Simulated assay, not measured.
Amino acid sequence: MEVQLPAYRDHGEQEPEDRGRADWRQRIASWMFWQARDKHQEGRPYEEWDGSWKRIGASGLPGELTWDEFVAARSGIRRRENIANTRPLELITVSGGSLFLPRAYAALLDCWEQVEEGLVARARICKGCAAQGPRWGGWRTQRPLGYATLCPPCSGAAFQRGRDRPIVDGSSGAAARRAGARPATSGMNDVTETQRRILLDK
């Protein structure tokens, strides 16, 4: 199937909700735009730089970039350029100024987008009141068993409940001493203590 590359958008032009979104077409396009920019600027005075590299050219790639140039330039880092643990650049073909991918592979990438966005959506929901939080994890709160999503009111309420609850910390040395138990020590400390008793017995 033919792959239609999305138009270039500067970071400042993107909506906060769109930044970092799982979008395999946008990710492939970004690799090409970066390479087209490098080709445009390389060996050219700064005064001659312009935005021509942001437009899709006759080759189907941004600017004056050709497919052979793109593949040659990215050959050293293609192992790191993966989407859903796959390497799309190895499956793309170019014909008549258009880019093509196997239809089954494109369907797999579409499924990856849905799964990724579903996980993000679940992680944004406040555990206390089910309100939706910001995309970039502003409500993520560290808890004893990991991280949880709590909106500011629910986070404040949870903190207050913790303050009102008696502090019982069996993992601390002070709590262990108050309970009349010997604090847990590492294996090295246990060996040292055993050696000390043997010397005292002598």
Rank of each mutant, 00 (worst) to 15 (best):
M1K: 13
M1H: 10
E2R: 13
Q4Y: 08
D10L: 05
D10H: 11
R19C: 07
R19L: 09
R19V: 08
G20R: 05
G20Q: 09
R21K: 15
Q26K: 15
I28L: 13
S30R: 13
W31M: 03
W31T: 08
R37P: 00
E42S: 15
R44Q: 12
P45K: 05
S52R: 11
G57D: 03
G63P: 00
G63E: 03
F70E: 01
F70V: 01
A72V: 09
G76R: 04
R78G: 05
R79A: 13
T86R: 14
L89A: 06
L89W: 14
I92F: 02
T93G: 07
T93C: 04
V94W: 01
S95I: 00
G96N: 10
R103M: 06
A104E: 10
A106N: 03
L108F: 11
E113L: 02
E117A: 08
G118R: 02
G118D: 12
R122F: 05
R122M: 11
C126M: 04
C129H: 09
G137E: 06
G138Y: 04
W139G: 02
R140Q: 12
R140T: 02
R140C: 04
Q142C: 08
R143D: 06
L145Y: 10
A148Q: 10
L150T: 01
P153S: 10
C154Q: 04
C154S: 07
G156M: 06
G156S: 12
A157V: 06
A157M: 05
F159H: 15
Q160I: 06
V168C: 13
V168D: 15
G170Q: 11
G170V: 06
G170I: 03
P183V: 01
T185I: 13
T185L: 12
S186V: 03
V191T: 13
V191S: 09
E193W: 08
D201M: 13
